[in-house]
Computed example of a mutant assay.
Amino acid sequence: MAAKQVLEDSVCCTIGTGADTSVWDDVWIPEEVARPARRAQLEVDKDLKVHHLIDPDSKEWKPELLEEFIHTDDIQRNLEIKISKSGRKDGYCWKHSKSGHYTVRTGYDIAVKQRRKNHFAPMTEPSITPLKQKQVTTANPQGDAQIFPWLMWYVWKARNEKCFNAKDISPLDTIQLARHEAETWRIAQIGDKLYETSDEEQTEHQSRARDTLVAEKRFRCLVDVSWSDKDDWMGMGFVLTEGEVVILQGQKCAPRTQAPINAEASGLILAMQETRDRGFDGVNFGSDC
């Protein structure tokens, strides 16, 4: 139940074509907790989709329809949402990561914060990390001594299956699983040592190739944006240099986008359009995203 609440509070629909998103049922209005749009009138079409509010030719919002159906306080938030120009399907955005994609780490952090806020004591399982470390430092363990940490782990898991799922796991299966995991882990440690040097050489080669490609570019353009979920507007700016000489600068204020990653993309698009319109080729673009 806790995980469900975290998802409900942290996910927002992203608008591509708008064909799959309900205006009144789906959480597509970006706020601290995303929500459906509020109505401008009591009687509305319950099947209204977001794409009905979008001009199919220009791929822009229809202001007259927004004013007719959407509450005045939500119209500005509508205009902040960027509509796909390429026909991308609607999706979902995880608001706790810069990329908009869900990660286990951010999901866990939010769940822990919510549990602490509700004063629930965290439920944890025993850790076998100290046992693994002891296993590594033991000189040439023999026989079943090698599988002891994994055996304890799978005994614990079998106990949980019995208590919570009424599922019986035989002792033989538990031992076989522990032996398999122990052998897999032992081989992985050998593989890490074998490939450590090779990975370092590959990384160095890729770094040199990347540096060479950047050096071939004559111009360098650095892009940055100012974005806050507490503001209705955001700022974008770029600086174009040739060597150490600044030859072009630009900045623009625009309605705040749905997520920081969208703001970075808007800043890059602005810089690319301005440099292209002025005839600059061979530009290396950089951002802190």
Results as ranks from 00 to 15, higher is better:
W61D: 04
R210F: 02
Q251S: 06
G91M: 01
T124P: 00
W156P: 02
N78E: 04
D168R: 08
Q251N: 11
I261Q: 02
E60L: 13
T21G: 08
D55L: 04
C13Q: 06
K162V: 02
D90Y: 05
P122Y: 08
W61L: 04
A111Q: 06
L213V: 13
G91P: 02
N262F: 10
R276S: 15
V283F: 05
D109S: 15
L268D: 13
V283Q: 03
C253M: 10
L213D: 13
N160A: 07
I169S: 11
G107S: 07
L222V: 14
N140R: 04
M234I: 15
R35A: 00
L177K: 09
S99K: 05
N165R: 12
Q206W: 03
N140W: 01
L248R: 14
D9R: 13
T184G: 00
K157I: 05
D74Q: 00
A121P: 04
E183S: 04
D47G: 05
V27H: 15
L151N: 02
L42P: 00
S198E: 15
K82W: 06
A111N: 02
F285I: 04
T174E: 15
L172G: 12
I175K: 04
A139E: 08
M236G: 15
K157N: 02
P122I: 06
T184I: 10
L213S: 13
S287C: 10
D25N: 14
E68I: 05
M272E: 15
D45I: 08
W153L: 08
V104N: 00
D57L: 11
Q258V: 13
